[in-house]
Amino acid sequence: NQESVVAAVLIPINTALTVGMMTTRVVSPTGAPAEDIPRLISMQVNQVVPMGTTLMPDMVKGYAP
């Protein structure tokens, strides 16, 4: 099972992602793949992402898996 990126903390809208904001988990439906964490760092979210929420590609500005 592939791990997806999950918010480790509450991420406010327009916040640039840091490694400490993200964790990985096997979830369904799958979100952004765990191996993309290095690409996701410094990208901004376009909505509030509550802690424990799977990071879906459409939540991150300019990100395409």
Rank of each mutant, 00 (worst) to 15 (best):
R39E: 03
P33I: 05
T30D: 10
V27S: 03
T54A: 04
I37M: 11
M56K: 04
V19C: 12
P38M: 10
V5M: 02
L10Y: 14
G31A: 02
I11W: 00
P33D: 04
V26M: 13
K61L: 11
D36A: 05
D58S: 15
E3N: 07
T30I: 15
V27N: 03
N14F: 11
G20K: 14
I11Y: 00
S28C: 14
L55R: 00
P38A: 11
D58T: 13
S42A: 12
P38G: 11
T53E: 11
P33N: 04
M59Q: 03
V9E: 11
T15M: 09
G20A: 14
E35A: 14
E3T: 08
T24Q: 08
A16V: 12
D36S: 05
P33S: 05
T23S: 11
V60M: 02
V45I: 04
A34V: 07
T15A: 12
N46T: 13
V45Y: 00
V5L: 02
N14D: 13
Q44P: 03
R25Q: 09
V60L: 07
E35D: 11
P29V: 04
P29I: 06
L40E: 02
L55I: 14
P50C: 10
G31E: 02
I41Y: 00
D58V: 07
Q47S: 04
Q2P: 12
Y63L: 04
Q2C: 15
A16Q: 14
I37Q: 04
D58E: 14
T23V: 10
Q44H: 15
T54L: 03
S42C: 11
P12A: 09
S28H: 14
I13T: 12
A8D: 01
P33A: 05
N14T: 08
V60I: 15
R25H: 08
R25D: 09
T54W: 00
A34W: 07
A32G: 05
V19N: 10
L10C: 12
L17P: 05
M59F: 06
A7K: 01
P57K: 05
G20V: 10
T53D: 10
G62W: 06
L55F: 03
M56D: 04
Q2A: 13
M43E: 04
I37G: 04
I37C: 02
A64L: 14
L40T: 01
